[in-house]
Design a binder for these strands. Structure first.
Lengths: 201, 201
DNA sequence: GATTTAACTTATCAGTGTTAATTATACCAG
DNA sequence: CTGGTATAATTAACACTGATAAGTTAAATC
């Protein structure tokens, strides 16, 4: 019964082909400027074939974003966490988050800006990869509190404060590249430093 | 020679009519889902008439955003600033900023998210209203430093840190309404409190 | 070898931003 | 009041868009 499996494999392969063509185009041209026809041309299939694999353009975006979130989560989890210095770990994670956004600005915007615009606020629902990213942040906050580097406070809310900080600076730097920002690295450091300082016990 | 003036007045009137129809539709339906034809239908003119008043759809968005920024600036400037308590003034301004965003979520997104997507990063150029909003923030930071409530530091960079914080929390709350945020007011307060605490001398 | 099933394409629809050509309107000089 | 002119607004059209239904081809099963 290897036939069905082979067919399934082939199907999955085309699915991936569509997906990576879509991401490449979304990133280089912007979601708005990419048509189903362009994606189809890139993989040399007819436009309607895509609809056999994805419900519509939004679902295509959805899948691309899911991959991005997986990448982000992976980037964060790869950081060698030093349990004995939770503050430094948190700082490094914050930096990694922002740098991920700046390294893949289009993907970051697709995930955290474009997607919620086209599907009302999805991407962080229970069990989602987005939620896992947030939980990762919270885990580090928890560790800082446990070791009394941070004062006693609501872990979730603190995670949200941190998230707001890194999300804010990331988007500003991406969206307004011509604004006379202070030196980029110094700014990111200051955002993290300020937030961390403000959370200390 | 009152004819020319009247004609100019009428022209300006129609321009405003187009603009307010556009904003209303942008806000209720979202920029993407509003067509020039819909705007035209709303004001009962032919679609192409709009092009006599605005170069294209992006310029229409541009003008709507400029108005939004003026509103935001006005909202901030109306706050009665208490020179003797620059910290409280700063906190109040921060709150006002976030609340403006939450009160007009679509307008906020149009201005700070959609526009930079359709025109690369415009809106904060020299002399723009956007820049004035940022300068307003900086002026308050400067006052806090001058009165030695904040430690000595780069005013611009500090302003950017503050902006990142309020921008971040505003967008998160708007874009992911279904996420289990902590109580909204408490979260905003904590963002402001944390940032301010982190900047103190 | 016939039949079922899956994969893919063609043709088409209603709607998009935008431009060029055209018509209608309001003004002014004689 | 008339004829001409400038300006405002419209009609028609173009090259696209996302999406669907119907049709076609190729492969696998019996």
């Amino acid at each position: 019964m290897g036939v069905k499996e082979r067919r399934a494999r082939e199907k999955e392969q085309l699915r991936q082909q569509i997906l990576s063509a879509a991401r490449e185009l979304f990133v280089t041209e912007g979601y708005e400027n990419v048509s189903m026809r362009k994606i189809a041309a890139k993989i040399e299939y007819s436009p309607t074939t895509i609809y056999l694999y994805f419900k519509d353009k939004a679902e295509l975006l959805d899948s691309v974003c899911k991959e991005t979130l997986l990448n982000l989560l992976d980037t964060l989890e790869r950081l060698n966490r030093d349990k004995s210095d939770p503050l430094e770990t948190l700082r490094k994670s914050g930096r990694a988050y922002v740098e991920f956004g700046l390294k893949h600005p289009q993907e970051y915007k697709l995930t955290f800006v474009v997607r919620p615009q086209f599907q009302q606020g999805l991407g962080l629902e229970e069990g989602s990869v987005g939620e896992k990213v947030f939980n990762y942040l919270c885990a580090m906050v928890f560790e800082c509190i446990r070791q009394k580097v941070f004062r006693q406070m609501d872990v979730e809310m603190t995670g949200q404060v941190l998230w707001a900080a890194v999300h804010g600076v990331t988007l500003l730097l991406i969206d307004f590249p011509d604004f006379p920002w202070s030196e980029k690295d110094a700014l990111i450091d200051m955002v993290l430093q300020t937030t961390i300082e403000g959370l200390k016990g």
